[in-house]
Computed example of a mutant assay.
Amino acid sequence: MVERSYYAPKGGLPPQTQLLSDRAVFTEAYAVIPKGVLRDIVASYLPFWEETRLWVLSRPLSGFAETFSQYIMEVGPGGGSDRPEQQAGVEGVLFLVEGELTLTLEGATHVMRPGGYAFIPPDSNWSVRNHGAEPVRFHWIRKAYEYVDGLGVPEGFVTNENDIEPTPMPDTDGRWATTRFVDPADLRHDMHVTVVTFQPGGVIPFDEMHVMEHGLYVLEGKGVYHLNQDWVEVEAGDYMWLRAFCPQACYAGGPGPFRYLLYKDVNRHMTLGRPGG
């Protein structure tokens, strides 16, 4: 088994001697939230979560994310929630980066460790608890599920990326690969959350422009992204939001793999408004 590394924020506050300038960028096409931004004073809290704080990486907002929200959750010893999701019709993905989390999903108990992945269907009965002595940190991606007449809702499941063989992209000699947690042909799913891995020197060799909105959290390594008209350096702990059709390409900087957790919305018609409505 390959030994994986996952970056997790710890909060804190920089010293008063630190320079103010950083790599944070917010534009109409993309945003970069560097790891140094995730400090104590920007943490949030949620109802019915004990011993828990979180950092909101994206949320539906005019000129920002439209289809999803993404949090980094930090659950202290003994913490968790028996009422984690407050909104009806919302699906979720949990991806664990640090610690050990006990997830109960529809009566079945799962112990999740780093690399652990859980898909939670809309309106599921679920809860989470940290029974350990150290904090647990995980990503929680939420999306309002888009129901389709004639298609059922996908079942919930729990797995770990270390148990899944990555799929190499064609004609890349394995330098670019994607760990997929659901079958791309299963149209019941309206979002994909994957782990993308570039070996040193690996590239996306053209500017992708597509309808999917993206959230990218760098789990490991460093790279350079071409976003819209700009070249942006990113490293483990940084987060990027990419608007639909934002030009995007990258190369891995080495010396180790460049890996990120990727969200995108998929498999649904474009919702159209009525003329004059």
Rank of each mutant, 00 (worst) to 15 (best):
M1F: 05
V2Y: 02
E3C: 02
E3M: 10
R4T: 14
S5E: 13
Y6R: 10
P9C: 13
G11P: 02
T17F: 10
L20Q: 08
S21M: 10
S21L: 15
S21E: 15
D22S: 13
A29H: 14
A31M: 03
V32K: 14
K35R: 15
D40R: 14
V42F: 02
P47A: 13
F48L: 09
F48V: 08
T52Y: 06
L54K: 08
V56F: 01
L61P: 00
F64K: 11
A65H: 01
A65V: 03
F68K: 14
S69M: 12
I72N: 00
I72L: 06
M73P: 00
V75C: 10
G78T: 06
E85I: 14
Q86N: 09
A88R: 15
G92S: 13
V93E: 04
L94N: 05
L96C: 14
V97K: 03
G99W: 03
G99F: 02
L101R: 10
L101V: 13
L105Y: 03
G107T: 07
R113L: 14
G115D: 11
P121V: 10
P121F: 11
D123V: 05
D123N: 15
S124I: 02
N130A: 04
N130E: 07
G132E: 04
E134D: 14
E134K: 15
R137Y: 02
R142F: 05
K143W: 12
K143V: 09
Y145K: 03
Y147H: 11
Y147V: 04
V148H: 05
D149C: 00
D149L: 08
E155M: 09
G156C: 01
F157W: 09
F157Q: 08
T159I: 12
D163G: 11
D163Y: 12
I164E: 02
I164S: 02
P166L: 11
D171E: 15
W176M: 04
A177R: 10
T178P: 00
R180M: 15
F181E: 06
D183G: 08
R188V: 01
H189M: 02
D190C: 01
H192K: 01
P200N: 10
G201P: 01
G201E: 06
G202Q: 06
K222F: 06
V224M: 06
L227Y: 03
N228C: 06
E233R: 15
G237W: 07
D238S: 06
W241I: 10
F245T: 13
C246G: 02
A249Y: 01
Y251V: 08
A252W: 03
G256V: 12
P257N: 09
P257R: 09
F258R: 04
L261M: 12
L261H: 12
L262V: 03
K264P: 00
K264S: 05
K264F: 03
D265K: 11
V266A: 06
H269Y: 15
M270C: 01
M270S: 04
T271R: 11
L272Y: 09
G273H: 11
P275A: 14
